[in-house]
Write a protein that binds this DNA or RNA. Structure first.
Lengths: 380, 380
DNA sequence: CTGTTAGCGCGTTCAG
DNA sequence: CTGAACGCGCTAACAG
């Protein structure tokens, strides 16, 4: 179609010469117009237009000023999750709102899960970072810390020197777990990935119960390959803090009703999509030991579960209870019990902190959540 | 929580001094490690670690090299549309994929619809622009052209010197219009906004028919306020090319079955959301002259229409036919007739062109689309 | 109100 | 394989 040849930009010096003024006068004309007389301002603008000068070079300006005007966002896994994962999308909507309010650009760092991610982070010209939940062993976290820029991690991992924003996932999972597992005999959890391998699998629970208030990272020495193995799902072995805490919370709930974790089936989805959840839920709901309660880690996964149940002719909550997470728009029409939290608000909060605003402290630092109890868990 | 104080970065010169080498040796150690002896490389890396040097300053590097490593994306209206509008999200997923493949960051420019948008564009440190559909009179387009950077506009407006990517919306609308309007007596269109005011309204068609192959911009002299007025909806007056072309196409279809445009009701949504569509569709489907065919400009709007019909106890397609646009995942289960096009592919294509790859020409330049005919339009 | 000085931190160029 | 000069394009801090 049309040519978009990148003709050389005119420089400020050229504009200054053409307008018969010094370079600083041109600079002021753009940066602090009120400091320049109306007369010369016009002369400068005219010269600029004549030369096709598009204004001060953004890179040069930011080098000089020491700030870029952009907030960096790192998605734990892959750049496209920004637009493919519904939870990430809601979160980023909040980040974007704050950026827009401050006139800051939002720069998505191109991570792909490979070793080059560290370089991409190091090379990002930004004034701060917001990190969407990633694994404890993600080297990107160290790279971000090394920049010395303000950074906020959402969901996990926690790291000294970097801010952290997340709800109390374990407490919330425990609460919704009590609701969805009440009266159940063959409970199941529909889980996010356990680690960066994102292996989809179905297995029973495993591992010893950890302390109720523990928020420790994944136990050292457990290699990723083991977590999804036939040996069973050990919550403590998951390297994603959100997954780990929610698994622990669901285990807490089931234990407190007298059940054993090793009797709980855990289906691990590789992505947060209803489609994949439907397939895994179908597996959980088929056969002689079909599950009668499914706690899902997102509404998307729960919706896939509801579709699977419907397709199998199973009644919800009669044959199987189901719970989700997030209270998305679809939860209410589906009569889905869920944990309400605003990812959008959390995104906004992360952005504000990463932009240098003081982070809330004390009680204000806690992120609100609450259980929304709907028909999908009311067995009778 | 934890402090994220921005301690001053160490510079390359400091690392050089600490390592007992010249600055250039440090630069090579990072940029072209193979040009440096293994011995000094270690010395340099050590000194860097000791000083907490995070690597070359991205801004300085890009100033020197003349490229930023980021692709700019401008959303016609507001930054958050990136994550709130389902169509924009699919498009950006394609853009993001290409960026990730090339190791380029994706910088979302913080537009808000205000006059400062032009400055935000001018100040963006990027190597090229992708523009998501905006109005013909959006000053941002001129600002982008002025940068001299490669730029691709998706959907519209067209502009000399900038690339353009879009399907033949008018032809597609005409085709799906014939399908959904077949046998109808009281047709309606559920439309995207007509102009930047994004006023939600319901009115009858107005204005003279334009030439079949016309792709002219909005007629001059029609001020925005007039387009949504009681005087009726004139396709030619819409300043959004996509809206304009689709309205023209629907008008073409209805005219070709012998109908008059002034008998077509047009409901204009302010956003691409099923929720708003449901409200407007309810209006269209209520009262003595309730519509019996509704052509929507997106699947989201069509889905809202289906919900409205269901709630009113109307049968689709028996009482009212409905068509959408895009063939999203929800279209097939809903048995929705729709126009299939891949916004994701188009996003990828825009990104590649904006990154400097040659744009396809000739037949390859055309974006594929096709009608998917499903039950929602098969009246008998 | 306008001009001068002095770099921001790095990488290209060309010697050695 | 390493080093010295120079400037990318702009602006903070001062004069005047």
């Amino acid at each position: 179609m049309s040519e978009t040849a990148a003709r050389r930009r005119a420089t400020m010096a050229e504009v200054a010469r053409a307008a018969g003024v010094s370079v600083m006068t041109v600079s002021y004309t753009y940066g602090q117009p009120e400091r320049v007389s109306a007369d010369t301002r016009v002369r400068v603008r005219d010269a600029a237009e004549r030369l096709g000068y598009p204004g001060p070079h953004p890179g040069a300006r930011s080098l000089r000023r020491g700030r870029t005007g952009a907030l960096g966002v790192v998605l734990g896994e892959h750049l496209t999750y920004a637009f493919d994962d519904p939870q990430a999308t809601r979160f980023l909507s909040g980040v974007a709102q704050v950026c827009a309010d401050h006139g800051m650009a939002l720069t998505l760092v191109p991570v792909t899960g490979g070793p080059a991610d560290v370089d991409r982070v190091t090379e990002a010209a930004v004034d701060g970072f917001v990190v969407w939940t990633t694994a404890d062993d993600d080297p990107v976290i160290d790279a971000i810390a090394a920049t010395g820029l303000p950074a906020v991690i959402h969901g996990g991992p926690r790291r000294d020197g970097l801010s952290f924003v997340a709800v109390d996932d374990r407490a919330a999972a425990r609460t919704v777990g009590h609701e969805v597992f009440a009266g159940a005999r063959r409970p199941a959890v529909l889980s996010f990935p356990l680690d960066r391998d994102r292996i989809s699998t179905v297995a029973f629970g495993a591992g010893a119960a950890s302390e109720p208030d523990l928020d420790a990272p994944a136990v050292a020495g457990v290699d990723a390959a083991a977590t999804g193995s036939p040996s069973g799902i050990d919550p403590d072995a998951s390297t994603f803090r959100v997954t780990r805490q929610r698994l622990r919370g669901f285990r807490d709930a089931w234990s407190e009703t007298g059940g054993e974790w090793s009797r709980v089936r855990v289906a691990v989805c590789s992505t947060n999509s209803a489609r994949e959840a439907e397939a895994l839920a179908t597996e959980l709901l088929t056969g002689p030991d079909s599950c009668d309660a499914i706690a899902a880690m997102s509404d998307e996964l729960a919706l896939g579960t509801l579709r699977a149940a419907a397709r199998l002719g199973l009644a919800v909550p009669g044959d199987v209870t189901v719970s989700g997470w997030d209270d998305t728009d679809a939860a209410s029409p589906a009569e889905l019990t869920t944990v309400a939290q605003s990812l959008r608000d959390q995104g906004a909060r992360c952005a504000r902190t990463a932009l240098g605003h003081p982070a809330p402290t004390g009680r204000d630092a806690e992120i609100a959540w609450h259980l929304i109890s709907r028909a999908s868990t009311h067995r009778r």
